[in-house]
Write a protein that binds this DNA or RNA. Sequence first.
DNA 1: TTTAGCACTCTCGGCGGGAGAGTGCTAAGC
DNA 2: GCTTAGCACTCTCCCGCCGAGAGTGCTAAA
Lengths: 354, 354
Amino acid sequence: MQPTNQPLTPRDRDILKDVIVTYILTAEPVSSRSVAKHGQLGLSAATIRNVMADLEEWGFLAQPHTSAGRVPTRAAYHLFIRTMMETRVIPARERRYIEENLKGVPADADQLMEVTSHLLSELTNQVGVVVTPTWGDTVLKAVDFVPLSGRKVLCVVVSTSGFVENKVIETDEAVPREELLRTSNYLTENFAGQTLREIRDRLLRRMAEERAQMDRWLTKTLELARRGFDLDPKPGVRVEGTSGLLNQPELADLGRVRRMFETFADKARLVTLLNQCVRGGGVRVLIGEDSDLTSELDFSVVATPYGVGDRTLGTLGIFGPSRMEYQKIIPLVDFLGETLSRALAESFSGPETK
Amino acid sequence: MQPTNQPLTPRDRDILKDVIVTYILTAEPVSSRSVAKHGQLGLSAATIRNVMADLEEWGFLAQPHTSAGRVPTRAAYHLFIRTMMETRVIPARERRYIEENLKGVPADADQLMEVTSHLLSELTNQVGVVVTPTWGDTVLKAVDFVPLSGRKVLCVVVSTSGFVENKVIETDEAVPREELLRTSNYLTENFAGQTLREIRDRLLRRMAEERAQMDRWLTKTLELARRGFDLDPKPGVRVEGTSGLLNQPELADLGRVRRMFETFADKARLVTLLNQCVRGGGVRVLIGEDSDLTSELDFSVVATPYGVGDRTLGTLGIFGPSRMEYQKIIPLVDFLGETLSRALAESFSGPETK
DNA sequence: TTTAGCACTCTCGGCGGGAGAGTGCTAAGC
DNA sequence: GCTTAGCACTCTCCCGCCGAGAGTGCTAAA
């Protein structure tokens, strides 16, 4: 399957690259003739045919059928991305557009996620996916309890990275306003700076101890806190732009469309895939059969982690047909990851409440 | 187009009904033979053919082509819904399922909306749509400001119906904790029970007056409030289950699929359509050409308003191919509207803070 | 008024052939 | 020895044709 010990000659590489690039552009099998014509190497179609036959033998090209042009394989895309592609520099106005949208608009981290997934799908024309942080891993900035009517209390939890979660709690008996305030202050002062997971564990321990001592106020406080912090442990996923893909020629038949929607409906698998994709940091690309999720659709994933400081909060990336403009998309995803991280850091952290 | 002054004879109606019911079930043009066979009126296919020819002339049936069976028109569906359909009674276990999901699970009104749209699409196999209340029309229950780091303040606005909105505000200078607390209390005490729109207008007036008097604290409070209440005036829309429709035979070609997604992408038009649909209260049905939005897709809308007391908060309903099980779907949408209204009333209002 | 019978129409699926595109191979040229 | 022109071959795609099947409309008889 590999070139017999020898690496590809420069000419082989030129031709392979040309095939890949034009296939990405046209979505149609590339013929030797078209390479000969528009390529800058002054070779005839026949010569190129020979090379292409070799490339096919080595596993870089494939033919849909005997008398069709050739199509790049996954191996070809990998090679292309690793060694042949010159990544496009993101135009200044595109950078500005992204930065304005991420730094200017959002009022909280949730909106930031929304804008990001929007930008992803808008700028790449693929499906944008953003995995939001797991609650257990976020760091508490402040808690607040707001009395509603009767025995209802609204619990507001804010993380250092700017995420806000609300939860209405029904208590056993009405809690006076001042007490709620004391509770909010106590919790914020004692637990800010720790992850919600740590806090929960600590709370449970404290509750066990406290139950013996019977400090009524503290017991109630801890109970409120436990219920307020009892948040969905699963990370959220934001998927945007699925319908945009309908225009891609690879989704010309209904079966695939249906399978695509099934794929994107299974959020849990999406998260797993994205997370395993970015293990190790930096932009990573999964192409087709690298994963069972995308192989039958011939889809690729380009993803990168985002976070504040050295703490990874989540993942963002795009899904789309393996035939995509990696030159543009990889730097874009990269840049969006960085910009989102910066936006999270700058807008929400600020000086720590110690 | 109408039966010549005469109403339809009972036999005509029986046959028409049979055609509609079997077409809803099978999605295929109904032949005279099939009506003769499985219908309980002991008539031959030929007789039925005559009647069906009349019904076609009167505009209740249509033929895709000469040698196909017949298909109900929009007029037929209307007639069916108005006078021929016996609405299915919702089975007890389905009722229970709905009530458990709406009363038990949700921690706030937003989750309630989410669960509702889910239920809609799950139980009807159509696209569930929920229009959430416009912020200006909701009634304030409580405001709260939470200090974050630096000059950041989190503003939490809670409405009587249980909706919570968060907004991070950046102030000119750091505001001490106590002052924020005073502000929260002042605003809640003075403005609870009014709609956000009223409050905003009143705030603006107060600010104009106050600026002259130069009460520093009040000026700051009002400024904070103005920014906190400056929420998105557009109602939100929650669309669920679009991909579920892909299995419907009416979406067998890609063009329609694409148009469907375009339709659902335009949230603003969806809102307009749903709102005009429920003008007048109670469940309403729009079929096909009643609206430009659905006519080219041959889609229908079944929608109903929801709200607390006599105040309409929003709209919920389903979209789907005109060929749908109105007998089941209409009572279901109705019941969901009622249950959502009840859930909103019971869980979140409680005794008013006077 | 209903019904049996029959001719007619239209769709749908399969078949075949011609055009077009692209290849692989061979033999000649540099 | 590498490159290239030429040519036969293969495969897809499109179009038109045909027969089967389904359903109708009409007519004439019950």
